[in-house]
Amino acid sequence: MITIKNLHASIDGKEILKGLNLEVKPGEVHAIMGPNGAGKSTLASVLAGREEYEITEGTVDFDGKDLLDLKTEDRAREGLFLAFQYPIEIPGVSNINFLRAALNEIREYRGEEPISAKDFLILVREKSAIVELDPKLASRSVNEGFSGGEKKRNEIFQMAMLNPKLAILDETDSGLDIDALRIVANGVNKLKSKDNATIVITHYQRLLDYIIPDFVHVLYDGKIVKTGTKELALDLEERGYDWIKEEMSL
């Protein structure tokens, strides 16, 4: 689904990603863990198309397309979704209206007819239930006045509405209490299928108790330095990252 090869990216002249490799296949869940400043959020930003980052080397193949050559909106239309670490509040822009516009632009891109008002409402009802998001919240201004937990649920609600091939969850667990975490994780699990894939970027192992990864990667100093299974996450939780640093310097 996505193949990242030797990716180098920098911001303001400072190199953050220093040759990152990653391959994700349909049906898989990958977790990316790592200490602060390792480049986790940079990876998410670069994949979503943030223009502040400069790609100096490497390729990203997304289902046969050169992802780095696509505009942000075209990446979304090709089926890439980023759940933001800090969802933006947009006063006055209705969540529902913008989602409908987005969905229709995605459909137009794929040569499909726009969704009818009725089908759209059915979709909203069905998908908001997945993350237990109050339909009233769904129709308010985007994230305006939402609690931290509601913002994250709204991200997963939008993901459910847009039904992406690849979802990148950037620290979706940050700021969530245990109940909200469970709801968000359940939502992600319900959306999982053999055709889509998820990259979970997280600091903590606890999210991975709910979203079980097939692979766990350790991102350190702009590169993936270790890959394992879910047990690796438990190891990291217990021992921290220092042992990896030591292993690296050997």
């Binding site: 198309g49 505009k71 942000t72 990446r75 979704f81 947009i90 822009v93 516009a101 987005a102 939008q158």
Partner: peptide
């Protein structure tokens, strides 16, 4: 707000639509 424009584009809206939506709001 360019952050908001990026957020809307990351959901599949064209840049033009995103700006129009925000001006309208």
């Amino acid at each position: 707000d360019e952050e908001a424009v990026f957020y809307l584009r990351a959901r599949g809206l064209s840049e033009k639509s995103a700006r129009k939506l925000m001006i309208g709001a």
